[in-house]
């Protein structure tokens, strides 16, 4: 795949110069701080609302902090990454920046793979940054024994990104609009979530990887209980990327 490494390197340089890496890092650091903060604030907030009443308030725990972390990552983080990756191929096609490079021997497949790698890199780094911050605050403020597997819980979500970003890249290749990737991702996410209403599908459904993090964290589910979903996720990602390559081959640069 001639040009893969060059395009990936170029993507990194451009993202840095366009302030995208810095902004992305800052946003996810913020998410990382917010999770333990919300966990700590919730009882205090409830107390101020319920003044005069005597209610027993649960002390905040590490689980509440991680719960907020996964809420942030799945409800916001995934969609932030969708915005990040959504314009990546469509913008090149709109502006015609690939013409000269492809005429010089750059393979179209290499473009798809480099864009995908770049998106995946950003996802992993963003997720880990937020994770590190939440981990540190949680360990300091809620040093309980309720969350024995924080690392294990993160893996399914990381893995879901493999499929998620492949879908976004496919959407970005399909249309000239920079939002098609985002919309396709949102549509697929909604579809998979609805599908999860059937209990039988749960083990195979990629979207379960974004739902079961807390169960893994507290140890009520094992890592391999979702094994079929990991496989479906990978297969889906491969299919999306293959389709994206096929589409880009046919598209006018």
């Amino acid at each position: 795949m001639r040009g893969y490494a060059l395009i990936l390197q170029n993507e990194l340089i451009l993202a840095w110069r366009r302030y995208r890496l810095v902004v992305l890092a800052l946003v996810f650091l913020l998410f990382g701080i917010e999770a333990p903060l919300v966990a700590k604030l919730t009882p205090a907030l409830l107390k101020s609302i319920g003044q005069g009443m005597t209610i027993t308030l649960p002390e905040p725990t590490s689980v509440m902090s991680w719960q907020q972390y996964y809420k942030n990552m799945t409800q916001i983080g995934l969609f932030v990454l969708a915005i990040v990756a959504s314009g990546t191929v469509s913008r090149e096609l709109n502006e015609g920046t690939l013409v000269i490079l492809v005429a010089k021997g750059l393979r179209r497949n290499a473009v798809i793979m480099a864009k995908y790698t770049m998106a995946l890199l950003q996802w992993v780094v963003a997720l880990l940054l937020a994770f590190g911050v939440t981990y540190a605050y949680t360990a300091y403020y809620f040093p309980d024994e309720l969350s024995p597997h924080p690392w294990l819980a993160l893996w399914p979500l990381l893995w879901f990104g493999v499929l998620w970003l492949a879908i976004i890249i496919l959407g970005s290749t399909l249309s000239k609009s920079g939002f098609t990737g985002f919309l396709l991702g949102a549509g697929v996410y909604l579809g998979l979530t609805l599908l999860n209403m059937f209990k039988a599908v749960h083990r195979f459904n990629p979207v379960s990887l974004t739902n079961d993090n807390l169960a893994l964290l507290t140890g009520t589910k094992t890592f391999w209980s979702l094994a079929p979903a990991y496989a479906v996720t990978l297969a889906g990602a491969v299919a999306c990327l293959a389709l994206a390559m096929l589409v880009l081959k046919k598209r006018r640069l």
Binding site: Y19, V22, V23, L26, V27, L29, L30, I33, E34, P36, L37, K40, L41, Y137
Partner: peptide, 23 residues
Amino acid sequence: EYLPFLIPAVLIELALAITGVIS
């Protein structure tokens, strides 16, 4: 009690706002 949360959060938001405004 909340300063360890607030200080970094405010700094980050400030940094985001300033880079944004300049650009």
